[in-house]
Design a protein around this nucleic acid. Structure first.
Length: 325
DNA sequence: AAGGCGGTCAACCGCCGGGAT
DNA sequence: CATCCCGGCGGTTGACCGCCT
């Protein structure tokens, strides 16, 4: 069987740490170093879970941590890295000496994402919110199809590419080479980037810059496609949460007029929300998510995104997607 | 002065990949 | 090979604080 449990979960203290506990943990780590967190609480005389000790140390007690406010340079770097990497907070934090992933994550959630929104930038896609809403409008005018209806040629082009996870798009051979500014950031990320899965098997270790240089790397392509599929899902969920606020300003009437009732009306009626307005917007996103599940579009997206021709508008894949539910 | 409200951030939760048994 | 835990990670929660009415 496996190992014994790390701690007696029913007998551990939770909640804020006291100065005494901090002192005990600090004293222990300063003499014994870190590692083997399972044994740390017992040896340090703490009634805490090892996991809690590790978190407290890495996020608060660790030497060389910065506790002052984020600088403008750090802020800019976070935004740039988030646009490239998404919410990989540990990778982003590695580029900010003295900052933890928790710091960066909190700062993003409480300050930066709001700042971007105030500037009209969607913090998920790093594109103008107007573009995002246009994409929703584009999706909305896909005419609803009854189940089993064969695809036809009436669908509109796919929405614009998002900037987020551009590295992945480079890897898939979809985007042109990065700008010098992007290259500078990528070079910094390389220094601390985790080894690729291939490295664990004695193969050459890949770095993020390799993603840009070698679009023929099958393993990397596969990883990139997974990221892209995840992006689509995350973006849809995020958009749903904001849809009621943002869509209130959106010209709903013109969208409805353009599609003659379209998906918005269909989604609204199918959910019993009464159609139109904010309820209709939320129901619309729900309908998309349901549609993904029912049709297996998640998997199709991966194939679709692997086809660069799709983005130049010449692929046959988009017409084979069968969007209607 | 008191209550409501929103912002901040430390801490917890739950998941996942890898490793130990 | 199966099972289970560890360490790491991102998402979420809730206590605390300051501001506003």
């Amino acid at each position: 069987m496996g190992r014994p449990p790390c701690c007696d979960k029913a007998n551990v203290k939770k909640g804020p740490w006291t100065p005494e506990e901090d002192a005990k943990l600090l004293a222990y780590t300063s003499t014994h170093g870190t590692g083997n967190w399972t044994n740390v609480p017992q040896r340090a005389g703490l009634k805490r879970c090892g996991k809690s000790c590790r978190l407290r140390y890495t996020n608060y007690l660790r030497p060389n941590l910065k506790h002052e406010n984020f600088t403008q340079e750090e802020e800019d770097l976070i935004v740039t890295l988030h646009a490239m990497l998404g919410s990989r907070w540990s990778l982003i934090a590695n580029q900010l000496p003295g900052r933890t992933d928790n710091d960066v994550k909190n700062y993003w959630n409480t300050k930066l994402s709001k700042k971007l929104r105030q500037r009209g930038i969607d913090p998920i896609t790093h594109r103008p919110i107007a573009d995002v809403m246009h994409s929703i409008g584009t999706l909305a005018i896909r005419p609803p199809q009854p189940p089993g209806t064969p695809p036809n040629g009436s669908y509109l082009p796919a929405p614009p590419l998002p900037l987020v996870h551009d590295v992945a798009y480079h890897a898939a051979g979809i985007l042109p080479p990065p700008t010098p500014q992007q290259q500078a950031v990528i070079a910094r990320v390389d220094a601390d980037a985790p080894a690729s899965p291939a490295a664990d098997h004695g193969q050459q270790q890949l770095k993020w810059s390799d993603f840009l240089a070698d679009d023929a790397a099958v393993a990397v392509k596969s990883e990139a496609q997974q990221v892209l599929v995840q992006y689509h899902h995350e973006a849809a969920v995020a958009v749903k949460s904001e849809a009621q606020q943002v869509l209130a300003q959106y010209n709903h009437e013109s969208a409805v007029a353009a599609n003659g009732g379209g998906v918005l009306a269909a989604a609204g009626s199918s959910s019993g929300a009464g159609g139109g307005g904010d309820d209709g917007a939320a129901a619309f996103i729900d309908a998309i998510l349901d549609c993904d599940k029912e049709t297996g579009v998640d998997q199709l997206i991966a194939e679709l995104l692997a086809d660069p021709a799709y983005y130049s508008g010449s692929s046959s894949s988009s017409s084979e997607m069968g969007w209607g539910c």
